[in-house]
Design a binder for these strands. Structure first.
Lengths: 153, 153
DNA sequence: TCCGTTGTTGCAACTAAGTTACAGGTGCAA
DNA sequence: TTGCACCTGTAACTTAGTTGCAACAACGGA
């Protein structure tokens, strides 16, 4: 049996930035819908990559379905507004592409081997040096580190 | 319904190295059983990290169950003979610790963004440099790269 | 302002990898 | 050879990710 149709009007996260988010969505060729604005808003408010589960849980009180969140994350990824990475803990994580640059290639991500937290390391540079005669891996390299985060150290 | 009990005697992969593998297992405080020798043998024959699925598939003709393979991989990991990493493609991969050293900390692993293959980069050195005043992540850092492998380049 | 088209949503069900409980079999020290 | 703690096979479960489908809503054109 089908559940009764629910009203689709719900309050997005931060009313004052919604206009910007909507503009951003339309600029990327996507329709501006409630769940989509909420997902984008949630990502723009986050300072570290968020998993689908995180976002779905955070937006569940607004009544949005996890499949919807999932498809929106995919849409946003495909539209280039968001990047998707698996940081090695078996969970896809999504992060807003700030300033249009390839954020994840600008700095490495650190997965804490103790608490599992993921953090960005914008102030850490990773140099990849191939020994003489060896081949340096090609392509836009993305670097992920595993170690202890600041708290767990 | 239970399947009829199967004979437990099966031929491990390489008869000539079995004695070594059994010694290694016993040295780590584990019993030397058929599946365990097969798993260890399979890993020692591999040059790159193998997933649980890979190994289970490879050993399926010998009649070993995937749950058994899984538990043995865990046992070997816990015993320190094997390391377990998720290289960012949503699959746990296991690799023999050769020479007792922390293999995965000696060199980075490369996950090809095109074909998905995983390769070891023993000839590539990764330098992690924190900008002045910034914190360098602590702990035994493990480095994972994503880019194009030699074949896909 | 209204309407039709088409993209989007919510629901439900599915897949795949990983994990565990349990009963019975086996390795190995005594 | 024996006994027991450890190990195995089976089956079922968990979790994250993914998809089909019917109903709904955004938005451009009339």
């Amino acid at each position: 049996m089908k559940a009764a149709a629910q009203p689709r009007k719900r309050r997005p996260p931060q009313a004052d930035t919604v206009a910007q988010l909507r503009t951003e969505l339309r600029g990327a060729g996507l329709r501006s819908t409630g769940p989509r604005v909420a997902v984008l808003g949630s990502l723009s408010a986050a300072s570290t990559p968020r998993s689908h589960g995180d976002i779905a849980e955070a937006l569940a009180p607004l009544g949005y379905d996890r499949a919807t969140i999932y498809r929106n994350l995919m849409d946003l990824t495909q539209a280039g507004l968001v990047t998707r990475t698996d940081l090695g803990d078996h969970v896809w994580r999504f992060e807003l592409r700030r300033g249009g640059a390839e954020h994840t290639q600008e700095h490495p991500h650190l997965v804490c081997t103790d608490c599992g937290d993921v953090s960005c390391l914008p102030e850490v540079e990773v140099k990849i040096v191939a020994r003489p005669g060896a081949r340096r891996p090609a392509g836009a390299l993305e670097v992920q580190l595993k170690g202890l985060c600041e708290r767990c150290e």
